[in-house]
Write a protein that binds this DNA or RNA. Structure first.
Lengths: 211, 211
DNA sequence: GTTTAAATTAAACGTTTGTTTAGTTTTGCA
DNA sequence: TGCAAAACTAAACAAACGTTTAATTTAAAC
């Protein structure tokens, strides 16, 4: 699906507003005002508010799917490196698509059917399969423990990153730092997240209970 | 604050609807219909829809604060037991207050000031302080590693549990199991969550990088 | 330059929203 | 029983919502 510059502008502005204030709290007039277009343009281009959301989902979902696809073809050496690489790419993806990720996380608890449901479901399933693949590889080579819960791991991965970023946003609201200072703090936070998430996963995967 | 049976009924029904469909998607008429009261009763008892949400928050928040307070007085032996006990109580709390937890999680990304913000902030802070306390105790006794990120751990704890429960709900939507079967599956899932979360945290806290 | 389609606009549409009003019923107490 | 306060109701309210209409401007093609 190809979009004109104006269409993309509407989609980008809508995504930001949806992520910041929620889908239902954001009115078409809010979007039109922020995107500096007439209210009728949303219906004209996308048909309806629901369809606009769907268009945003389809667009962003496509690029996220590509990123996850690329993980499969990643060629690294050891199982541990594979897990670390996976965590890196995963965090990169969520940070790069922050707004969409927040929107999806927020609305996924309410969307119970339809194309959006199917997309979210596929994303979750793909994510779990990739974790499973990385884990099984390490198990085959005798590096990882056998009784690892893949459902658990994939939810820890996405849940931890999500919660960490959300908490960080929360904390930033309380500071009066400049944009630059916030940017630095964010990078620091994400790096700490990477480090500890890797360490925790490797520990969980290789930990010998007996010791 | 004391509430009559009818007031509690409205609050309970509203909480369920808010959690299931989101605050803004749920209309006062939806609440009135489900609670089998007149639409005017919400305004009559609570003043406004916002105030109703606030009343629900204050009510539930109070009991959650008590649960967290009790954790401090928990007397257990080893640092590892302390961490395990903490995870158990924490999961119990989130499961027991599932609906409220979902509502709070959903709206916390949108609430940026006011009494609700302050409550959520306190809950997050308390949670982090408790994790910190349990960790420091283990560090003092030489059982836990020194370079542990408490911000990271608390976000992993709440994020993982939240994501796990959300995923489980998501998966249940796809099955056609009976209510009993779903209840059994849920208990199983929660037990698995307990087990792996404990294992992962202990591994993270005690893991020796060098080995 | 004229024609035709696309883009854009202001205004209006019908609904739904949260809330209020004005009136009725129920309750608790003297 | 009588009465005042509380509980409850149906109806109406203005505002905001998503969407449509009808008219106008812009752009492209011939």
């Amino acid at each position: 699906m190809e979009y004109s510059e104006k269409q993309r502008q509407i989609m980008d502005v809508a995504l930001a507003l949806f992520a910041d204030h929620g889908y239902h709290k954001t009115s078409i007039r809010d979007i039109a005002r922020a995107a500096e277009v007439n209210v009728a343009m949303v219906s004209y281009y996308f048909g309806s508010k629901d369809k606009l959301l769907e268009a945003i989902f389809i667009h962003r979902f496509g690029t996220m799917r590509e990123i996850l696809r690329d993980i499969i073809y990643e060629k690294t050496h050891s199982p541990i490196e594979k897990v670390e690489k996976f965590i890196d790419i995963f965090i990169d993806m969520l940070v790069q698509h922050q707004l969409f990720h927040r929107l999806m996380m927020r609305e996924s608890s309410v969307i119970k059917e339809g194309p959006l449901f199917d997309m979210i479901y596929e994303l979750k399933t793909t994510n779990r399969r990739l974790v499973e693949k990385a884990v099984k590889n390490g198990q085959r080579l005798g590096v990882f423990r056998k009784d690892v819960d893949v459902f658990f791991m994939s939810s820890v991965l996405i849940g931890s990153v999500n919660q960490n970023l959300a908490n960080h946003r929360y904390e930033m609201e309380h500071t009066q730092w400049t944009v630059e200072e916030k940017e630095v703090a964010k990078k620091k936070r994400i790096n700490a997240l990477r480090k500890h998430l890797k360490r925790m996963f490797i520990a969980y995967l290789t930990f010998d209970e007996g010791q």
